[in-house]
Design a protein around this nucleic acid. Structure first.
Lengths: 214, 214
DNA sequence: CAAGGAGTAAACAGATCGGTCTACTTTCGG
DNA sequence: CCGAAAGTAGACCGATCTGTTTACTCCTTG
């Protein structure tokens, strides 16, 4: 892998859709198939374990197309993570739109995570997994990973503010801990229904928080 | 990497020290240095990102010695994880020996994790990280990873039993969630002092659990 | 109709991967 | 004193890795 210099030739335009972050490459049909294949393979087997030749073969695309569109494997990794993040945020936003009560909105995040997790292999959170493989903070994908977690923490904190404003910061962090714990326990198969268990614990936590907040 | 067939030539003896698991190779001076180097490199950079040539060079050992002792890179990975697990259990046992009150013993696990984490790079739990890279359940290291998490869950459940016997199973899982969440949040730098925060949440949880258990 | 964007097919390059091998040296216990 | 264990030094193997290149084919659009 090159030293993070390469971007796709036509990159560095496109409007900001969600959070900040490097790049998005225009998705031609071939690029779209490549990204879909890369996403599946990266998630199932790990990033380092999947080569560009395999991605190209699975996508029914030549390596030239891969490099014409993305410029480097590192950029494919960035697109993979940014794409998953974007999808997750859209999925979650849709779930949250339908719920009004502050307490239910918080629990809806856990429900969304459970449903999201159950629609693919039980391999847990792609950001946590990617963080285990990408150890260099200068890697362009690193910001996507930490940005996703920072966004989730901010979300929990915001949701907590509507429920217990004085304890929002601490409560947000506690919810984050339960949520991350649920994702990991689910991904590693430590015990069954881990995300549901985390949800129940969150529910108890919220009850106590409301009681003790002004 | 070979298909998991290779073990060190002299393997498959040595008494069971801790939990079950595939095997420990006798540690000659060269093998010890190699394992120390491999452990540091694997943890800091990830398993797939570290080659056997680098391990040999950092350990001041030739590749022949590596393969005479371990037989394969896969076996080095197994030794790396089993060694860390063994060390962690010894470290934790020492901490637990000094505490008697059931509630304090549970909190001592969080304290031990915090201290253990702070003595190395903030890269979180080596088992969680390894699980992100080793995706094949047939890999000999997989049992070490899942075995470690199962052991931790059993530990939390046992400790919980002394405090709230009727809720031990559920309480053990809740503690596990907080603990794993703390490890991940710490490893990814999501917010400061994550393990301490998890400890505080565990403390509150224990208070409530005692109140509602027989 | 001409030009350019998107793509296929496939060879190629250089580096690195895990792993093997030969030849020689050092150390130590029976 | 001798043989086995543990090690160094370093060449070597085939496979795979990321990335590049040449030559050609579609298809769309001005």
């Amino acid at each position: 892998m090159s030293e993070y210099v390469k971007q796709a030739p036509e990159a560095s335009k496109a409007p900001e859709t969600g959070g900040a972050g490097p790049r998005r490459v225009p998705l031609t049909p071939g690029a779209r198939r490549a990204l879909e294949a890369a996403g599946r393979l990266f998630y199932e087997r790990g990033i380092h374990a999947v080569g560009v030749d395999l991605i190209a073969a699975e996508a029914g695309v030549t390596k030239k197309t891969l490099y014409d569109r993305f410029g480097s494997k590192d950029q494919i990794v960035v697109e993979y993570l940014a794409d998953r993040d974007e999808r997750w945020r859209a999925f979650l936003a849709d779930r949250l739109e339908r719920v009004r009560a502050p307490r239910s909105r918080i629990l809806a995040v856990f429900d969304a995570s459970r449903d999201w997790a159950e629609r693919s292999l039980p391999r847990g959170c792609s950001m946590i997994n990617a963080h285990a493989e990408i150890t260099d903070p200068a890697h362009p994908a690193y910001a996507v990973i930490t940005g996703q977690k920072a966004w989730m923490l901010a979300l929990f904190t915001d949701l907590a503010r509507a429920l217990a404003p004085r304890r929002a910061k601490s409560l947000g962090r506690s919810l984050m801990l339960l949520h991350e714990g649920g994702l990991v326990a689910y991904g590693m198969g430590i015990f069954p229904d881990a995300i549901d268990h985390a949800r129940r614990d969150a529910q108890a936590l919220l009850k106590a928080a409301v009681r003790s907040d002004g």
